[in-house]
């Protein structure tokens, strides 16, 4: 008797779980992934902050029509950031933040980054890269390049959909393919962007304070001469 009862109890769980997914299929209860955005909005440009927490019903989603949101720290392959309204330091370089220092290529464990430093007409090295390649088929998505970039110029992308029928040309990304505006980065990494903006503000304030002090000193000196 006991033999059959324990087996049936286990089966009861399976049936209960089956029924709950079936009800979910009839849209009678919410999905495990929460209410996902409609397919058109589910692109990676719009990423909710939290992770799905609700459980019950279906644990799967209808990919690619539906997509699970990815957290801010999710990393796939790197991209380069450029400012559309660059400050005075980077205005000459179309706002591209990368200075071709090469630390990303040096910290990259699988060595998938290749940089060529730009040169001016006079043959002098300029703080900008003329060529920048990332071989996405080698990249191990560790995020070291983004972590160690001192200029916040390289960040990790959330777009994981670039499968192709061949793995040589279409997976080696060049400078033009890698460059994204700062708004793209801000949408993917809101808290990281907020930190950058705060640092930028602090820097500007410090510079303004320094200039004000200098001006005050100059004025005081001028006043002293006049007196």
């Amino acid at each position: 008797m006991a033999f059959g009862r324990e087996a049936l109890r286990g089966m009861g769980i399976t049936i209960r779980r089956f029924y709950s997914t079936y009800r979910h299929g009839l849209n009678l209860q919410p999905s495990a992934a929460g209410d996902l955005p409609a397919p058109a909005e589910a692109r990676n440009t719009k990423v909710p902050a939290g992770m799905p927490t609700r459980v019950g019903g279906l644990a799967t989603v209808q990919y690619p029509e539906q997509k699970l949101p990815v957290p801010e720290r999710f990393r796939y392959i790197p991209f380069l950031v450029y400012d559309e309204e660059p400050d005075h330091e980077r205005a000459d370089f179309d706002g591209v933040r990368c200075t071709a220092c090469g630390i990303c290529a040096k910290v990259c464990p699988p060595q998938c980054i290749w940089i060529v430093q730009g040169k001016g007409e006079d043959g002098k090295a300029r703080p900008v890269s003329s060529e920048f390649y990332i071989d996405a088929s080698i990249c191990m998505s560790c995020g070291f390049c983004a972590e160690y970039c001192p200029f916040d110029a390289i960040k990790m992308d959330h777009d994981y959909e670039f499968s192709s029928y061949e793995r040589h040309e279409s997976w080696v990304f060049d400078l033009q393919e890698l460059l994204h505006p700062v708004a793209y980065h801000a949408a993917l990494h809101p808290s990281d962007y907020a930190r950058e903006a705060a640092e930028e503000r602090a820097k500007a304030e410090a510079r303004a304070a320094k200039e004000a002090a200098k001006a005050a000193k100059a004025a005081a000196a001028a006043g002293g001469e006049a007196g």
Binding site: V55, V70, R73
Partner: peptide, 23 residues
Amino acid sequence: SLMLYTFRERESILDLMEMTGGA
């Protein structure tokens, strides 16, 4: 059927890892 249920819980742990460390 057990595999479906254990992987459901494991998935939320992996989601947490992704949220914390990015992968």
